[in-house]
Amino acid sequence: MNNNLKPFIGFRDTVSGQLAGPYISENQLSELIRLLPVSRPSPVQYVFPDLSPLIRHIHGQIAGAFQTYSQGQQDKQLAEEYELIFTHWNRACGMEDGPKKERAWEKVTDMADPLLIHLRQAMPKAKSVKDWDEELIKNIEHTGRLYTEVLLFIIYARAAYERASLGRVSPCGNTAGRLRRYWPRIRGVTTSDR
């Protein structure tokens, strides 16, 4: 491989299902966010994956990023908020099943909502191409990673204590619907900047 100096690009083509272009390790991580197919004969086709190793791995990336470049007041606040929700998530993970654990999960999802709002505010505004620089790239990468990590917290918590509602469409404001509300916002950010 002599193309180390070239920027890597890669993702799964939605039409053909094939991987196109060289890999990006970030995208390989994203690849893990999917239902695991069951190979042996069974009444179910898929197993919901345990996303906790992924959450921990991304947490490592985030913690590292906070350590290397977070000096601003807003950054400090976000770092604290994030640290707090991770601690709660971590604690809930280790609890014995029962009503206490359910309350712990509820707390995680409750904490996620304000943090998502703060992260949307922290997401850098769209800038014209000539104003792009390394710092902006790092900032967007970091904020985007935080945002999706918090979404993972929510999904993980829901899967743990309210799994039936995670995907079920119920008449009044179902979970999936509530979670979906977050997508257009981040989509708006990713496409308008380009």
């Binding site: 990006i24 086709q45 898929y46 995907g167």
Partner: peptide
């Protein structure tokens, strides 16, 4: 960078969509 975020969000999205799909049985 934007594409990576976009991709991760799409993955989350399709995970939830596959759960909503009534034909998919998930354990």
């Amino acid at each position: 960078t934007l594409a990576q975020i976009h991709y991760r969000v799409s993955q989350l999205e399709s995970l939830l969509e596959s759960l909503t799909d009534g034909d998919t049985k998930v354990d």
